[in-house]
Amino acid sequence: MRVALFVPCYIDQFYPQVAVASLELLEKLGCEVVVPTDQTCCGQPMANSGFASSTEGCDANFSQNFEGFDYIVGPSGSCVLHVKEHHPSKKIRNSVYEICEFLMDVLKVSSLNAHFPHRVGLHQSCHGQRGLHLSSMSERNEKHFSKIEDLLALVGGIEVVLPVRVDECCGFGGTFCVTEEAVSVKMGQDRIKEHHANAVSYIVGVDTSCLMHMEGILRRQGSKVQVKHIVEILNHA
């Protein structure tokens, strides 16, 4: 299967290991992975700040890089959601997948050669969950399901622990993290407090942006807890 890997800009620049793991994982699962090298940003930072009118350049660049692919796969719920909801091309909107969604719904992965013998706290990123419906939502009266938990269950040795507030937002929120700094940090601290109480070694999520925010707080607190994008664990032999 031919797949174009969508590497969001901040992952490209600050978390290359997440893109590397995505690439390796998809290849391991038999995909022919193409990495369009002129890709930049999906335009979400501007759009969520009220400047969707300024994202034409990003949209055009995204189209140039990803036109013609039936599967555009990215390791970021919020960037994928942005493309799915706002990109002008219907073909692209219909072809973009968050990586867990792609693994479960398209590749239908049922086993993985992965091992991660640690106690891991799961952070539900809102855009992956409420936007892309990667898992059931605590607000709704619906049957429990989670593509994320199903994938993690394929990893050897892992122990996944859920916080009590199972899907509360971490407070990253794009530019919200600086324009509403006080609330943003408080929300992040409160999420982390629950994971600390659960004595986890790692916090895992499907959105590096949430993880970056929580990592920033963890490091400032001098915590030993680390953050991992789910693909880093799924690709961990």
Binding site: G188, E215, G216
Partner: peptide
């Protein structure tokens, strides 16, 4: 404002595209 109560992410030597 990010740095007020959070550390900045550690910048890697190479971007993903450079590595790729």
């Amino acid at each position: 404002p990010w740095y007020k109560q959070r550390e900045m992410p550690v910048a890697p030597q190479e971007s993903f595209q450079e590595w790729y």
